[in-house]
Amino acid sequence: MMNKDQWKPSNGIVLESNAKQAIFTNDNILVQAGPGAGKTELLAQKASYLFQTGLCPAPFNILAISFKRDAAENIKDRVSKRVGKEEGSRFISKTFDAFAKLIVDRFYLVLPKDLRPRPQYEISSNSTQTKIYEHAFGYVPDRNAVNDLLKVDLNDINPQSNNYKFWKYMLMGEEKTYLTFEMISRLALYIIQHNKYVRHAWC
């Protein structure tokens, strides 16, 4: 553990002024740069700073969310190399889909009954979604029609709508629950929005 004034970036990296500001600030910031500019390294150094100066003490963790799995693994590896495995274990790096799935798998019971999936569910294929749509509405849809029914604000879903009917067939079919990653993301967002205990656990 070291004083904030003593901390220096690892691997002999020299930070330019904007990068230093991004690492040392306690404010929310947006970093924009092109491919290969060092955004991942900047985030790894920021995590190192927070761990090594005690600004993120145990048992608190740091959560990083990426679009792609290789990016999530890359930043996780970089942080572990800089702070060691013990501190690195407190750096949780997930993709958006994986994080949303974690929320739904752990906290699905807080969802309203009509939006609650079974604990054992399958990630549905396009063909499964088409079959469920045909069963619900009596005809074979085009792909856009299925996608449109999945993209719904769960805070404002109309129980009389086709969106609601299709979600119910996906969630509470006769034998299984089928989910898409689109549905999982929307269920996770609903949980975080409506349950302060889950929100407090991750924010």
Score class of each variant (00 low, 15 high):
residue 1 M to G: 15
residue 3 N to R: 11
residue 4 K to V: 14
residue 6 Q to S: 13
residue 8 K to Y: 08
residue 8 K to Q: 15
residue 8 K to V: 14
residue 12 G to R: 04
residue 12 G to I: 15
residue 15 L to F: 01
residue 16 E to A: 06
residue 20 K to D: 01
residue 24 F to C: 00
residue 24 F to N: 12
residue 27 D to I: 00
residue 28 N to D: 13
residue 31 V to D: 01
residue 32 Q to S: 13
residue 38 G to D: 01
residue 39 K to E: 02
residue 42 L to I: 04
residue 44 A to Q: 00
residue 46 K to C: 03
residue 48 S to N: 14
residue 52 Q to S: 09
residue 53 T to A: 01
residue 55 L to I: 07
residue 55 L to H: 10
residue 57 P to V: 05
residue 58 A to L: 02
residue 60 F to N: 15
residue 61 N to E: 14
residue 61 N to C: 15
residue 65 I to D: 05
residue 65 I to C: 11
residue 67 F to W: 14
residue 67 F to V: 07
residue 68 K to E: 13
residue 68 K to W: 04
residue 72 A to L: 15
residue 74 N to W: 01
residue 74 N to V: 01
residue 81 K to Y: 07
residue 83 V to L: 03
residue 83 V to C: 06
residue 84 G to P: 06
residue 85 K to W: 05
residue 85 K to P: 03
residue 86 E to H: 11
residue 88 G to A: 05
residue 90 R to D: 02
residue 90 R to H: 15
residue 95 T to H: 10
residue 97 D to L: 11
residue 98 A to N: 12
residue 98 A to F: 06
residue 99 F to R: 01
residue 99 F to Q: 01
residue 103 I to L: 14
residue 104 V to T: 05
residue 104 V to Y: 14
residue 106 R to M: 15
residue 106 R to D: 15
residue 107 F to I: 00
residue 108 Y to S: 10
residue 109 L to Y: 10
residue 112 P to Y: 09
residue 112 P to I: 13
residue 112 P to V: 10
residue 112 P to E: 03
residue 114 D to Q: 07
residue 115 L to Q: 05
residue 116 R to K: 14
residue 116 R to L: 10
residue 117 P to F: 14
residue 121 Y to A: 03
residue 122 E to N: 13
residue 122 E to G: 05
residue 123 I to V: 11
residue 123 I to T: 09
residue 126 N to W: 06
residue 126 N to L: 07
residue 127 S to L: 13
residue 127 S to E: 14
residue 130 T to F: 00
residue 131 K to C: 00
residue 132 I to G: 04
residue 134 E to I: 08
residue 136 A to K: 08
residue 140 V to F: 02
residue 140 V to T: 11
residue 143 R to F: 06
residue 145 A to M: 09
residue 146 V to Y: 02
residue 146 V to H: 02
residue 149 L to V: 06
residue 150 L to N: 04
residue 152 V to L: 04
residue 156 D to W: 07
residue 156 D to F: 09
residue 157 I to Q: 06
residue 159 P to D: 00
residue 162 N to G: 07
residue 165 K to S: 09
residue 166 F to H: 06
residue 167 W to D: 02
residue 174 E to T: 10
residue 175 E to F: 12
residue 177 T to V: 03
residue 178 Y to M: 03
residue 178 Y to G: 02
residue 179 L to S: 09
residue 183 M to S: 13
residue 184 I to S: 03
residue 184 I to A: 05
residue 185 S to L: 11
residue 186 R to V: 00
residue 187 L to H: 09
residue 189 L to A: 11
residue 189 L to T: 11
residue 191 I to W: 06
residue 191 I to C: 06
residue 191 I to D: 05
residue 192 I to M: 13
residue 193 Q to W: 13
residue 193 Q to T: 13
residue 194 H to Y: 10
residue 194 H to F: 03
residue 195 N to R: 07
residue 196 K to L: 09
residue 199 R to T: 10
residue 200 H to F: 11
